[in-house]
């Protein structure tokens, strides 16, 4: 275990820790709301995992500053690969040169996670609705008690 490895990965390890805490709450807790909370934490941690992947050191959010936006039409400027650098230099536009210097973090994880968050809240809503219904029917939301009631029946 080298130091670079540690500094390169400790982010992920904390995210793993968060995920596992959420997972633990889901499988260990018998209260239904607590289970749903656990699920929430689990999912938020996965979102963090994805977002962590998209980050580039020294990068910035994938939002094009107003000055540059609109000028890069039709260009194939590359923010990272050095083999493309000469193309960029060819351009007379000062803005374009600026654009090449700005490093953007990868927007795709963000896009995916927007979807995932929405899916997560949909699941939560459905789960909560089920809990309300179960609580009406059984008068409790503790799984152990409910199983006991069903067994007695």
């Amino acid at each position: 275990m080298t130091l670079t490895e540690f500094f390169g990965l400790y982010n992920y390890w904390i995210v793993v820790f968060l995920m596992m805490t959420g997972f633990y709450i889901v499988i260990a807790r018998r209260n239904m709301i607590k289970t749903v909370i656990g699920l929430n934490i689990f999912q938020v941690s996965v979102v963090l995992l994805y977002v962590t992947m998209g980050k580039v050191t020294g990068g910035t959010a994938p939002i094009i500053p107003p000055g540059i936006a609109g000028h890069s039409d039709g260009e194939h400027a590359s923010s990272h690969g050095s083999h493309d650098a000469h193309e960029v230099v060819d351009h007379a536009h000062q803005h374009a040169a600026d654009a090449a210097e700005i490093i953007y973090s990868n927007p795709l994880p963000s896009v995916l996670m927007l979807t995932a968050i929405v899916v997560g809240i949909a699941t939560t809503a459905l789960a909560l609705a089920l809990i309300v219904r179960i609580s009406e029917d059984y008068g409790t939301i503790e799984e152990d008690e409910i199983l006991l009631m069903d067994r007695r029946q």
Partner: peptide, 23 residues
């Protein structure tokens, strides 16, 4: 009344599965 309970249990398991998939 066991139906919503079964659905809830499936939801928990299913969501764990889906989250694993996502990981």
């Amino acid at each position: 009344r066991r139906a919503p309970l079964a659905a809830f249990q499936y939801l928990i398991m299913g969501t764990i599965g889906a989250t694993f998939l996502l990981i």
